[in-house]
């Protein structure tokens, strides 16, 4: 499940930070933080994850840095759709036109398309 995968990655990240000797104190702090997060109870970890990710139909999606990011289009569309439904290009463009100032050009659209595939590499939210 997603929580297990995130815990696993947190532990791996902690080990990676701990093994880096270049910037000891800072990376040690990150390592400790990752270790602590990995050991959070389920409810607490989910609460903490809400700060950096959004659950969408059983997968976690990292929040974009910018509020007008095309990733927000995907998040909205996926949330509005049933889990097994499909989205058309026109639906994506229409949603972008409504929620982004400039809509999506072809380049941005293809990035959204590619990202949607990457997004679904996530593990489900629940076991």
């Amino acid at each position: 499940c997603s929580i297990q995968a995130i815990r696993r990655d947190l532990r791996q990240l902690a080990a990676k930070y701990a093994s880096d000797r270049k910037d000891g104190p800072k990376l040690q702090a990150l390592s400790n933080a990752a270790t602590n997060c990995a050991s959070f109870p389920l409810v607490d970890l989910q609460k903490s994850l809400n700060q950096v990710a959004v659950p969408v139909h059983g997968v976690y999606v990292a929040k974009p840095a910018k509020p007008n990011s095309p990733r927000n289009i995907l998040i909205k569309l996926f949330r509005d759709k049933d889990p097994d439904s499909k989205l058309t290009k026109q639906e994506i463009l229409d949603c972008a036109a409504n929620h982004l100032k400039k809509g999506l050009n072809e380049k941005d659209y293809h990035q959204v398309w590619r990202e949607s595939v990457i997004v679904f590499k996530f593990c489900p939210v629940t076991a």
């Binding site: 995130i6 791996q12 990240l13 902690a14 933080a33 997060c37 903490s48 994850l49 700060q51 950096v52």
Partner: peptide, 9 residues
């Protein structure tokens, strides 16, 4: 997500 959460924490 793991990296972002670690940074926040």
């Amino acid at each position: 997500i793991a990296r972002a959460l670690s940074s926040v924490a």
